[in-house]
């Protein structure tokens, strides 16, 4: 039975992509950017925003029942039981 947890796994893949890409960006800013107030503020602000967004997203996603089937076809009228996929 395929449940809607596939959407959750898809989101985890996107979070992984986000973390990797963010790492490369911050690496470039630290390696090639000047040691200036602006550069440091941008890095810190981004890390705060990213942490907040990911934490808030998982709070929202944890409220969902991921065990629900993806497709639920009622075929009782045909004399059989429901088909869950």
């Amino acid at each position: 039975m395929i449940t809607i947890v596939v959407f959750y796994y898809l989101y985890l893949v996107i979070v992984l992509f986000f973390v990797i890409y963010s790492f490369f960006n911050i690496y470039h800013l630290i390696r090639f950017g000047f040691a200036s107030f602006t550069n440091i503020i941008i890095i810190v602000a981004y890390l705060i925003a990213a942490t907040f967004l990911i934490a808030y997203s998982f709070i929202l996603l944890n409220q969902v029942d991921w065990s629900l089937p993806l497709i639920n076809l009622p075929v009782g009228q045909l004399g059989g039981s429901d088909i869950n996929i």
């Binding site: 898809l10 989101y11 986000f18 963010s22 800013l29 990213a50 967004l53 929202l60 996603l61």
Partner: peptide, 27 residues
């Protein structure tokens, strides 16, 4: 749940895109 995942993914991609554009211009 599908809408939630789509919207959250959109915001994550937007956030990393902003940082990429900033990095490319700032450097």
């Amino acid at each position: 749940p599908l809408l939630l995942v789509l919207f959250l993914s959109y915001y994550l991609i937007l956030l990393v895109a902003i940082l990429t554009v900033w990095t490319e211009n700032y450097l």
